[in-house]
């Protein structure tokens, strides 16, 4: 399993775009928002937290279909399914690798982009905390969606349709943490709920995703 993890990281690094693509997309979303909404700093500081969450979510979505599709195409997935690695573990590792290559960089640059959007100073800590807690759920849910659509020809569009509704609770609580943080309110409740969703997702979805992968490999 450790071998699988390092291989995935290495593939993301070598193929290029593993880290960069999501980040560039995130930056583009954040650049386009003021262009669409107007440069008014007050307005921007009000919507900054939400925009950053939405941008992170979309950037995450962008790379989801790579989680299993590449291994599916070259037959690796089939061979891995006959290896001693349990599929549940495989899904978990894949989601972890996706989080490291996509989620963590997003969390790291979010404060910088927050500066572009006039995020209030009190908001930075909770924005980062919320993203840090919430993005693993995005990767795990995404891995489930990727497992569902792995064998399909027009899978990536369907993948968005399937995954985005599942992102709703995470988005709501995550953005709420950032919003309340920016407004200087108490963030404990949404932060705990967000953590709960992430932990629940990490605990249960690997099994669902592995079941679905088995079906798709038949």
């Amino acid at each position: 399993m450790r071998a699988l993890f390092w291989r995935d990281i290495m593939l993301a690094l070598r193929a290029g775009g593993g880290f960069g693509l999501g980040l560039a997309f995130f930056l583009i979303v954040v650049t386009l928002v003021p262009l669409a909404l107007g440069p008014n700093p007050e307005l921007l500081s009000r919507v900054a937290a939400g925009i950053l969450w939405l941008g992170a979510l979309l950037a995450c979505l962008l790379s989801l279909d790579r989680i299993f599709a590449l291994d599916w195409e070259d037959g690796t997935l089939e061979l891995l399914a006959t290896s001693p690695v349990p599929l549940e573990g495989l899904v978990g590792i894949k989601a972890l690798a996706h989080w490291i290559t996509t989620g963590v960089p997003l969390v790291c640059v979010a404060p910088v982009l927050g500066g572009l959007l006039n995020l209030p100073a009190s908001g930075y800590l909770w924005l980062v905390a919320g993203l840090f807690v919430g993005t693993p759920a995005l990767s795990m849910i995404g891995a489930f969606g990727a497992a569902l659509t792995v064998g399909l020809k027009r899978g990536s569009l369907l993948l968005s349709l399937l995954v985005l509704p599942l992102y709703v609770p995470t988005l709501i609580f995550g953005a709420e943490v950032a919003r309340r943080g920016a407004a200087g309110l108490d963030v404990q409740t949404p932060l705990l709920l967000l953590t709960g969703i992430t932990l629940g997702t990490l605990a249960c979805l690997p099994f669902a995703a592995a079941a679905v992968l088995r079906v798709n490999l038949r």
């Binding site: 399937l162 509704p165 709703v168 409740t189 949404p190 038949r218």
Partner: peptide, 26 residues
Amino acid sequence: TAADLTAVLCLVGSVFAFLSRYAVIF
């Protein structure tokens, strides 16, 4: 295959729809 995949999606979706319901109220 379709029956299996959609059945799992329905299960997972139900949990998330339920969560969304309470998230939205919140």
